[in-house]
Amino acid sequence: MDRPLDINELYSGKKGDSLFNEPFLPEEMSTESTELMQSWAESLPDERLRAITTALVVENRIDKILSIFLPKYGRLLELSVFGFSSKIRLLEALNLVPIALTSTCHCVRNIRNEFAHNLSKKKLGDISRKHLATLNGLYKAVWKDMSRPAYTIDNVPFVEFFNLSLYCIAGLDKYVANVALMREAISRPEFVEQLRNECSLENKAFVNAIVAKYDHNFVELTDTLNASMDD
């Protein structure tokens, strides 16, 4: 029997695997994201359109996080090679959000690509076995034994993609607040000054340790020389 949905658990990752392993405001969702979710929901009848729209919304949420954390993120957007895949990998490299979120981003991108590059594929059940297996594995890993959003159609790949899309879009949005607060904190002059002081203290401790070791060795050498002269 499914457990009740636990928002904190759903959007949280393993402690230590990423800088943030849970959203500061798990119940909140931005107005911007709510509007994007509404546009996303309107693409419901067509599975190809659903996959392509989902990828656009997920990419938008990644852009939001990266633009907050990187003040000059626009410089990267000027590069023709900096696309959806690069954005996901950059988010992974920064390690700001749980791994399950970035893994789901990759899954969404791969499914989008299958539809974009093959016009004969119209349903989620038409995508490759490899990507269907990834979709199913992520679906089980993310939702575990918690209750999923209700859906009435008998289409397993679609239901799995729908639920994972919901998790991915909302999950990325929920970590925006974490990243925004961190960006604000590290941009303060007092934060930089604190780092300067800590660096100075560590450097002094390092130098003092070397001097102390040198003095100790010098004393030992002097004692040895004196002893040899006495002999």
Rank of each mutant, 00 (worst) to 15 (best):
V179F: 12
S18A: 15
W143F: 13
N118H: 09
D46Q: 10
Q38D: 09
F115T: 04
E32I: 02
P45C: 12
V156D: 14
A41Y: 15
F24V: 06
S103G: 01
L181K: 06
D63P: 08
F24R: 07
K64I: 01
C168V: 06
T54R: 03
L49R: 01
E42W: 13
F82W: 11
S200N: 05
I210C: 06
L5P: 13
L19P: 10
N110V: 06
M37S: 05
L90W: 11
D17R: 14
I62F: 11
E22Y: 14
E22R: 14
D17A: 14
L56S: 07
F82I: 04
P149L: 08
S103W: 12
R3A: 12
Y151K: 01
F161W: 09
G16Q: 03
L201H: 08
K140N: 11
F191L: 09
D173I: 10
N136D: 14
R183P: 04
I210F: 13
S39D: 14
P149N: 03
A133F: 15
H216G: 00
I186A: 00
E32M: 00
N21Q: 11
L49E: 01
L25D: 07
H106S: 08
L195V: 09
V159I: 10
F218T: 00
N163H: 15
L119A: 13
A51Q: 00
W40A: 05
K14L: 15
E190H: 10
I111G: 05
S128Y: 13
D126I: 08
A177T: 01
E220Y: 11
S165C: 13
A93K: 11
F158P: 04
L44T: 04
L221V: 02
N95D: 08
N178P: 05
F115L: 10
N118I: 03
P98G: 02
E22G: 03
K130I: 15
D215L: 10
G83A: 00
Y151L: 03
R109P: 02
N95L: 07
R112K: 07
M37C: 10
A150G: 03
P189Y: 04
L96Y: 09
L94Q: 00
E28D: 10
L119V: 12
R112L: 08
T54V: 00
A180K: 14
F158D: 07
N136T: 13
G16L: 06
F82C: 02
E160D: 04
E78D: 03
E47H: 07
V159R: 08
S80W: 10
R109C: 03
A205H: 15
K64F: 13
N178V: 02
L164K: 08
L19F: 15
L225D: 01
S39L: 15
Q194T: 04
I65R: 07
D154V: 04
C107R: 08
T104A: 15
C168D: 04
I111Q: 08
Y139H: 11
H131D: 13
F84W: 13
L94E: 00
K72W: 09
W143L: 05
E42Q: 12
N8L: 15
L96F: 12
E9G: 03
A133H: 15
E47D: 07
L132W: 05
K64T: 02
Q38F: 14
K121T: 04
P98R: 04
R50Y: 13
E78S: 01
R183Y: 10
V207G: 01
A150I: 05
M146Q: 02
D231H: 12
